[in-house]
């Protein structure tokens, strides 16, 4: 990889200042960024390691919200009793990311900021209607994801926390890509307090993570597998690669949604 200056600030303001340097890049846990750097696909002048900023770590319950610091690792989320009590789907999701070593370093903020089309977290953020809190503002998840590896974040903007509304029920059904073990097509399903159902799909869309309106509508009125059968999930807009055709991905959206329903029944 190309060389760069490495800095590990211990507070947010220092991090933001460092990110003001021309060519600076922020790193959460580095579990996706470092492999990218190894391939020389990115050439930062300064790498700002956010992992020492304690204020960005931690999980806390705030009323009907669960707030997870942007620098919280997947491992911390997976093993948190607060998360398991509030949003069990998030526990499942975090426990299925990568492998134990990746979970020990990778962070929720890093995952969301990268918006890899096969990453797990974006589906939860969308399905739960999370709010992404940054050093500058709050962004609704529905406005945050803007296509492959693209988000609403400005340069120098850092995800400090993610606020998740607490659903009445949630689950994450992951279907792995056979090689990378990322998501081939996975579904995060949340049943909200108002009775609405939200379905976040990752790994499938050619433009990245998305909510499936048809499934949400059908399930909000009839929370059953047969309701899923009645929904047409189009293969249009699904990505195509060695591991899955658009048609297969469309099928998996339905199958994983049905499994989510079964898991919650």
């Amino acid at each position: 990889m190309y060389n760069f200056d490495y800095t590990k600030p211990t507070d947010l303001s220092a991090a933001v200042e460092a990110l003001g340097t021309e060519g600076a890049v922020a790193m959460g846990g580095g579990q996706t960024l470092i492999p990218v750097l190894k391939q020389r696909l990115s050439a930062p002048s300064t790498l700002v390691d956010l992992s020492a900023i304690d204020s960005m770590k931690g999980i806390r319950r705030m009323g009907d919200m669960l707030v997870i610091g942007g620098g919280t690792t997947h491992g911390a989320v997976a093993s948190s009793a607060d998360v398991a009590a509030a949003i069990p789907g998030l526990t499942e999701l975090a426990a299925k990311i990568g492998d134990p070593q990746v979970r020990n370093r990778g962070t929720i903020g890093g995952s969301l900021a990268n918006n890899d089309p096969a990453a797990c977290y974006p589906s939860a953020a969308l399905a739960l209607g999370a709010t992404i809190e940054t050093n500058q503002r709050e962004i609704a998840a529905d406005d945050f994801f803007q296509g492959l590896y693209t988000t609403a974040l400005n340069e120098g903007e850092v995800i400090t926390a993610v606020k998740f509304p607490i659903p009445t029920a949630s689950t994450y059904q992951k279907f792995e890509q056979p090689a990378s073990r990322f998501s081939l097509t996975s579904v995060f399903l949340a049943k909200m307090g108002d009775g609405s159902v939200r379905v976040g799909v990752t790994g499938a869309g050619a433009d990245g993570v998305f909510r499936h309106a048809g499934l949400e509508q059908a399930l909000s009125s009839d929370f059953s597998a047969s309701a899923v059968d009645g929904v047409e999930v189009s293969a249009d807009g699904m990505s195509n690669d060695l591991h899955a055709t658009p048609a297969f991905r469309a099928n998996l959206v339905k199958v994983m949604t049905k499994r989510a329903i079964a898991a919650l029944s």
Binding site: P178, A179, S180, R181, L242, H243
Partner: peptide, 25 residues
């Protein structure tokens, strides 16, 4: 079940890393 060194029609190895070449775990 898993492994496949797949080339596209231009002779590029599509499964050129463990991200696409599935090793048994």
């Amino acid at each position: 079940m898993l492994e496949n060194a797949a080339y596209d029609e231009h002779g590029q190895l599509v499964s050129g890393s463990y991200m696409d070449y599935a090793m048994p775990l």
